[in-house]
């Protein structure tokens, strides 16, 4: 079982990234749960979601001590990094945050998601940069499953599909080129 906490600001695609992860897990025949928590604002408020992907029935849907934290901005990184379980993984959006967690029992990956997303063609694809990095680091779901989700999401919008698929690939590459701190 892997518990993933995705956190950031409303509008960064945190919830849709979480949903795609859960859908990918379901496609691969796993048990999944997706529990979002967000304020009343559409943009700008805090947004986070807990995604669990497991081979067995999922009891608690909460991720208070996640195995993996995805932090899309500085406040989310500093709020949740202390809660990551020892030995866990943190992927932080280096474009909007530092990457100093103040502990050495977790692996922190610094991925400049916003910059890479702009390179891919649209800053809104930053969430898929991070998903690319996540898949590269953890192999929790297959790349193909995420790409399937993207295809479903952007059906009839080939230009957006291309940008987001590129963002996903660049996210994977960013891990290879030494994202780990």
């Amino acid at each position: 079982m892997i518990r993933i906490l995705l956190a950031g600001q409303g509008g960064q695609g945190v919830l849709s990234a979480g949903k795609m992860l859960a859908e990918s897990g379901l496609w691969e025949g796993k048990e999944v749960s997706y529990l979002p928590a967000y304020g009343p604002e559409m943009r700008g408020g805090t947004a986070n979601c807990s995604v669990i992907i497991s081979d067995e029935e999922i009891a608690s849907p909460l991720c208070n001590n996640p195995d993996v934290l995805i932090a899309m901005n500085g406040p989310s990184f500093h709020k949740f990094a202390p809660r990551v379980r020892s030995g866990g993984i943190v992927i932080v959006n280096g474009s909007l945050s530092d990457c100093y967690a103040g502990r050495d029992d977790i692996s922190v990956y610094d991925i400049a998601a916003n910059d890479i997303a702009m390179q891919a063609g649209d800053i809104r694809s930053a969430n898929n940069v991070i998903l690319g990095a996540l898949c590269q680091i953890t192999h929790i779901v297959k790349d193909k499953s995420i790409i399937n989700c993207l295809n479903e999401k952007f059906v009839g919008k080939p230009a957006l599909m291309e940008i987001n698929a590129r963002a996903f690939e660049l996210g994977k590459a960013a891990v290879e080129s030494g994202g780990e701190r």
Partner: peptide, 9 residues
Amino acid sequence: GMIGQIMEP
């Protein structure tokens, strides 16, 4: 409220 927001198979 969690039932309202959770997504599951």
